[in-house]
Simulated assay, not measured.
Amino acid sequence: MTSSAYSVHPTPVGDALIVMSDEGLVALQLIDGPAGDALAALSAALGAVPDRDPAATGRVAAELDEYFAGRRRAFDVPIDWGLTRGFMREALQVVCRIPYAQTASYGEVALGAGHPNAHRAVGTACARTPFSLIVPVHRVVRSDGSIGEYGGRPGIKRFLLDLEAAAGE
């Protein structure tokens, strides 16, 4: 494991735990409780405890602020895909191609990942993504057009979709 750093950054949808490695963004998770709980779980997955270093995560924090202000439509920060493997990585990389203020169904993402019958696995990949917001899993919806869940917080998903729709006008 390369060295890693973290910070907690406030957003309109809650605090975001940002973890960076030498390769790029390892994780961005919206947290409900103490950052230590989420950080402990990530540390176990990383095999190391990140250092608290807001300067190391500053680029991601700035891009998040621009996104929520309606001034950023795509994130430029490099992603360290180390916590993802196999189909999960393939599906999340397809999700990265969904344009701002647009949506794709779980089935469309599965098809784009080369596994047309894996729509449920896409849902699992979206639910377990280590990259909330930066990989726009909020843009993945059910085939009937309903928005579905967002880590058990559909209100946040609705907020993000509405934010993008308003900024896209």
Rank of each mutant, 00 (worst) to 15 (best):
L64A: 07
H115L: 09
V77S: 11
D76H: 11
V137F: 00
D37L: 12
P130A: 06
G151M: 00
H115A: 15
E149K: 03
G58R: 05
A16F: 06
A48D: 09
F159P: 02
E108W: 04
E66D: 15
P130G: 04
G14P: 11
T84H: 09
P12A: 08
A104P: 00
R71I: 05
G151Q: 10
S7V: 02
R85D: 15
G123T: 13
T84S: 14
R59M: 09
C96Y: 02
V94T: 11
L42Q: 08
L111R: 14
V8C: 06
E108C: 07
A44E: 15
A35S: 10
R85L: 15
E90W: 00
A121M: 09
G151I: 06
S21P: 08
V137W: 03
D162N: 13
G107I: 10
E63F: 01
D37E: 12
A101H: 06
M20C: 14
G70H: 00
A27T: 15
T84G: 04
R142E: 14
M1G: 07
L92G: 06
W81N: 02
Q102G: 00
Q93K: 15
R139L: 14
I147S: 12
S105M: 11
R73L: 01
M1Q: 01
V140C: 09
D22K: 09
P136F: 01
I98H: 08
A110W: 08
L28M: 13
I134E: 05
T57A: 12
G33I: 01
A118T: 04
R97A: 10
H138F: 15
I31K: 11
A101F: 01
L133C: 05
Y100A: 14
S7K: 00
P116D: 07
A62W: 09
T11N: 13
G112P: 07
M1D: 02
T57R: 05
G114V: 11
A27W: 02
A91I: 09
A5F: 13
L92Q: 10
E90D: 15
R59F: 08
R85Y: 12
P10M: 09
L133D: 07
D37R: 15
E169Y: 01
V140H: 03
I79K: 03
L17R: 06
L133A: 05
Q29N: 12
H138P: 07
A55R: 06
E149N: 13
D51Q: 14
G152Q: 05
V109M: 03
Y67L: 00
F75S: 03
H119P: 00
L39I: 04
V26C: 07
A69M: 01
G152R: 08
G70M: 01
A69L: 11
S3G: 14
